[in-house]
Design a protein around this nucleic acid. Sequence first.
RNA 1: GGGCUGGUAGCUCAGUUAGGGAGAGCGUCUGGCUUUUAACCAGACGGUCGGGGGUUCAACUCCCUCCCAGCCCGCCA
Length: 561
Amino acid sequence: MDHDRMSTDDTDADSNDETATPVDEPDDEHHDFWAEGVADEIEQRDPNDPIVIKGGVSPSGVAHLGNVNEIMRGYFVAEALRDRDHEVRQVFTSDDRDPLRKLPRKLADPDGQIVGLGEVDAGALGRNLGKPYTDIPDPFGERDSYAAHFAALLEADADRLGVDIEMYSNTELYGEGAFDPVVERVLDRVDTAREVLSEYQAKADDDYVPFNPICEECGKLTETVTDIDLDAETVDYVCTDMEVGDETIEGCGHEGTATFREGKLPWRFEWPGQWQVLDVDFEPFGKDHAEGSWPSGVDIAENVLGIEPPVPMVYEWFTLNGEALSSSAGNIVTVPELLELLEPEIIRYFFALHPKKARDLDLSRLDQLVDDFDRFEEAYYEGVDDESVTAFAEAAYPYVVGNVTDERPIRLPYTFAAVLGMVDDRDLREKLARDEGHIPDDADEATVEAALARVEQARTWAERMDNAYNYRLQAELPDVAFDDATSDALDSLADVVAAGHDGETIQSEIYDTARDHGIEPGDLFEAGYRLFFDETQGPRLGEFLGDLEQEFVVGRLRRER
RNA sequence: GGGCUGGUAGCUCAGUUAGGGAGAGCGUCUGGCUUUUAACCAGACGGUCGGGGGUUCAACUCCCUCCCAGCCCGCCA
């Protein structure tokens, strides 16, 4: 669960909380993929099919890569169980009866792009503080509510990553009475509930009632319940002020009556309630819950609700570019943004790595992650000289890619793809890739297309990062000036190219020509890079020029076009 | 202050659950591809496994302690 944590987020950890994990059961089987170990743990509970795996978020602001932990970590466990012939449902709760407690600093528009509050009617949001997300209009005016907007973003992300999740709206679950038995039990045993809760939080005195009705007058969630009627399944309440951090959300003073379907349980009860209602067998959650709501949830599940809590798994948070994820600070990346830079299977790979390690996703070195994935893939198909990588790949690769093809897919090395991105011509890209041996002669068109798709991604990366690969073949002659010796050398080189030499010859001619004209080869190379890239460095020049249109190269070397 | 989880090469990470060889990729350096110029190939350099102590024939691995980082220890979620 990644509730309401826009500023931080994720990564992993497996869990073994002694409160819920049978420590006396022998975990004698070693697995090369963590999800298999979790699957063991779940099977030891002897659960009924379908096995239910849950994730969930509070629809606070932006759906970002941190939330993907909730989706992907459960996904791998689900797949491991399906592989063992279990029927598995992966459910996801949008905890959308939660109240909007403060204005988010950033939102994601319907396309998943991050925008500031200035893009929307922030005033309308401000007037709705304290109301459930499902009762607040979609700031973008498309969906039924703020909550629906957020849920749609998350569902779209899951879809982009190829994960099939069943979304559940908490508000709908309350509305249709799914929580009724939970609310009734908690209120019936309100003394026990207070006693259990008091172990974990101070605010559990004799007046405390773990149910927050929605005020029928102002629509805000309230916390002052004055009477409980178990037979009628209602509570009486007074709409009092609510303290939220340093701020106060004012109540309207209304006194009314609400049914069990017109309010919500506080989080510490709601979470175990979800386990009961959805019959949850496994749930991953971020480290923030490990010492907070998880222990209390277990206690409440066992001693108030009388159910067995799911198998837990704590995941560590990952950092982005070395810093904690923070939407307000702008240190955030969304799934659609990342998919402009790499393939979805690489995102899945990232989340297949051990959840217990805090990782850094460094966009400036995405090539490392892609290289790691490529090696992981190679390990699956052919094995690599690192046993642990090969073992991990054999266990995890099928889940990471979803559909394993007979043949290993062609992957252009990411930085090489970035080099190809320096030219726009698609056929030239293909030629360069073939010349370098990255595309086999017998590759069909679809295979070539698939391989070249990475060029656009690597190109986008080079541009975004403005790194050492962000060169562009200059269509127009750059503003250049050379001394006489260099100019003469360039003319000579132009003659060589005009005579029709291939790349290798051009490469060696650059050296010879430079010497013939009494200049350093380095100077001539630099002149070439100036002419073609308007830079002082670039890719291996001779071979590069050899692949370009001869007439263009000659003209450019003569500084004519 | 207490608790939880991490800390392995410059970078990204395996390896730790069952104690016995410290590893990979990338980067760097060197060399090769007739010829320093980012794509290819080979080799090398590179680590007190966060520090210290203990147990053991043997510790990255187990125990104690300290340091660093994140999280939890109000409310909410």
